[in-house]
Computed example of a mutant assay.
Amino acid sequence: MAGRRVVWSKKLPEVYGKFDEVDALVGRHLDLTLLELLKLRSSILNGCAFCVDLHTRRALDAGETHQRLFQVSTWHEAGAVFTDAERAVLALTDEMTRMGEGGVSDATYDAVAGHFSEEQVAALMTAVAMINLYNRLAVTSGLHPRRR
């Protein structure tokens, strides 16, 4: 049928479950609001409306402010709205999400490494990779947020 797309998570629930396990493991190493900002930023860059909606709601539930959520799309210009550590994570998210031939710059990697332990850097890298995977699957499946 034209216009119908497979919702990957419904057809491969065992894979979806494993992805959720990875997310839970990564989440043990990072602050929840930082993790949601990272996921929101990547979802914005990937044009995934379903994930933008999901991670905005989760961030609000975790205590994130409206102002900071509104500024994620323009974090480069948001000044002191974000800490230096958060800005480093958002830069890493941008470079990993838009990864081209140059990969992630040394300056961006070093900025993240200057604020986080090696274990946390590994968790951040995994979190960005996972949300990019989720975004690509959600967009390809044609998932859209429900109107509230």
Rank of each mutant, 00 (worst) to 15 (best):
M1C: 06
G3R: 01
R4W: 11
R5K: 15
R5V: 07
V6A: 09
V7K: 14
W8H: 15
K10C: 06
K11V: 06
L12N: 05
P13S: 04
Y16E: 09
Y16V: 02
G17P: 02
G17N: 08
K18H: 12
K18F: 03
F19G: 07
F19T: 02
F19P: 00
D20H: 04
V22H: 03
V22G: 00
V22T: 10
V26Y: 04
R28L: 02
H29R: 13
H29A: 02
H29L: 03
L30W: 00
L32E: 09
T33C: 04
L34D: 02
E36W: 06
L38G: 00
K39G: 00
S42A: 14
S42M: 01
S43D: 01
I44F: 02
L45S: 03
L45F: 04
N46S: 01
N46M: 10
C48E: 00
A49K: 12
F50N: 05
F50H: 13
V52L: 00
D53T: 05
L54C: 02
H55V: 06
T56V: 13
R58K: 14
L60F: 10
D61K: 15
D61E: 15
A62I: 03
E64Q: 15
E64D: 07
E64L: 04
T65M: 06
T65E: 04
H66N: 15
R68F: 01
R68I: 02
L69D: 06
L69H: 14
F70P: 09
Q71V: 03
Q71C: 02
T74I: 13
W75M: 01
H76D: 03
H76L: 08
H76T: 11
E77M: 12
E77V: 04
G79L: 05
A80K: 09
V81H: 08
V81W: 08
F82R: 12
T83I: 13
R87D: 00
L90Y: 12
L90A: 11
L90D: 13
A91W: 09
A91L: 08
A91C: 08
L92K: 07
T93W: 08
T93G: 02
D94C: 03
E95F: 02
M96P: 01
T97Y: 06
T97R: 11
T97S: 02
R98N: 12
M99S: 07
M99R: 09
E101G: 09
G102R: 15
G102C: 08
S105T: 13
A107K: 10
T108H: 06
T108Y: 10
D110Y: 04
D110W: 09
A113K: 15
A113M: 06
G114K: 14
G114R: 11
H115E: 11
H115R: 14
H115Y: 07
S117W: 10
E118R: 07
E118K: 07
V121M: 01
A122V: 14
A123L: 03
T126L: 06
A127F: 05
A127L: 06
V128D: 03
M130L: 14
M130F: 05
N132L: 10
N132E: 07
Y134M: 10
Y134Q: 08
N135L: 10
N135R: 13
N135S: 08
R136P: 11
R136H: 05
T140F: 04
G142Q: 12
G142M: 14
L143E: 14
H144R: 14
P145K: 15
R146G: 15
R146A: 09
R146M: 13
